[in-house]
Computed example of a mutant assay.
Amino acid sequence: MTTPSPSFSPIALITGGSRGLGRNAALHVARAGTDVILTYRSQAAEAQAVVAEIEALGRRALALPLDVADSRSFAAFAQQVQAALASHWQRERFDFLVNNAGIGIHASFMETTEEQFDELVNIHLKGTFFLSQQLLPLMNDGGRILNVSTGLARFALPGYAAYAAMKGGIEVLSRYMAKELCARGIAVNVVAPGAIENDFGGGAVRDNAQLNAMVASQTALGRVGQPDDIGGVIAALLQPGTGWINAQRIEASGGMFL
């Protein structure tokens, strides 16, 4: 086993951690006592602001650039992570991987282009698959992987056929990862958010009052989700007491479309 000594704080690597749900998750994870490596694609200033917030909480943090759509860059990124672990933490391994980075494309089945489809494949499915593959040698045995899916993989709303199909693939992939990584004691789970008031997909749920009201009316808890609803779930699933949860899909939607 290469699990770190209890004197070390665990380290989580969160993709897409400079904004949205990734940022919220990074802050929740830090508040729970975990150091964070977060990735960003182009917004370096936003990423550094999250690093500063995490450091203000008394945790260590670092932001690294990464385009999850470019699998050819993953080997070099893994080398960057290895160097960062050595220089910032004097460690060789990290503990938790949260595959969060993604985009939303809203288009009907008939209007979805091949270019849109390929972009979603590269970011959500191919990116998660091959980035995890590259980073696994740097993970501690007994660690955790969380792959972010969507409630849309369970219920269907027009305009999300391609996006939801990618997330459905992620859910199947996660079960296979859990099966194949069991020898190392690495648990793999899926977090599937429902509709959230943030800038995802152009901020439609946040900014469209009619859509917001419709979602709230179809949610058992009677409101649309907030980023804190998801960040808290991600942090909870990385705590020591939840290590026996494995190969599960945890939907955090407040009970949408029951």
Rank of each mutant, 00 (worst) to 15 (best):
A204T: 10
S132D: 10
Y160E: 06
N189L: 02
A195T: 00
G142H: 06
Q133S: 10
M177P: 06
N140V: 05
A195S: 05
A183I: 03
T150L: 10
G168L: 05
M166Q: 14
V188D: 00
V205E: 14
C182K: 14
Q210K: 14
N208F: 07
G159L: 10
E197K: 14
E171P: 03
Q133N: 15
L138W: 05
G194Q: 10
A187L: 04
G201K: 04
G142P: 06
N212P: 01
S149L: 06
M139G: 05
A165P: 09
L157G: 13
A164D: 11
S174A: 13
S174T: 11
A162Y: 14
K179G: 00
R154V: 08
A161P: 04
A161D: 09
V190Y: 00
G202K: 09
V191T: 04
Q210R: 13
E171K: 03
N212R: 15
I145R: 01
L173S: 06
L146W: 10
G151D: 07
A192W: 01
A204H: 09
I196Q: 11
G203Q: 08
G194W: 08
N212S: 15
F200L: 09
G168F: 03
N147H: 08
A161I: 06
L136F: 13
A156T: 13
L131S: 01
R184W: 05
V205F: 14
G203T: 08
D199V: 02
S174P: 05
Y160F: 15
R154D: 12
V188Y: 00
N147C: 07
Q210N: 08
L152K: 04
G201T: 06
R154I: 06
A161Y: 04
G142D: 07
I170Y: 01
A156I: 10
A192L: 03
G168N: 07
A183Q: 13
A156D: 12
G203V: 06
A164W: 04
T150N: 09
E171Y: 02
G159T: 11
R154L: 12
V191G: 02
A153N: 02
E171Q: 14
S132A: 15
A153P: 01
S174M: 02
V190M: 01
E180Q: 13
T150M: 10
N140W: 01
G185W: 02
M139S: 04
P158V: 11
M177W: 13
G143H: 14
G201R: 04
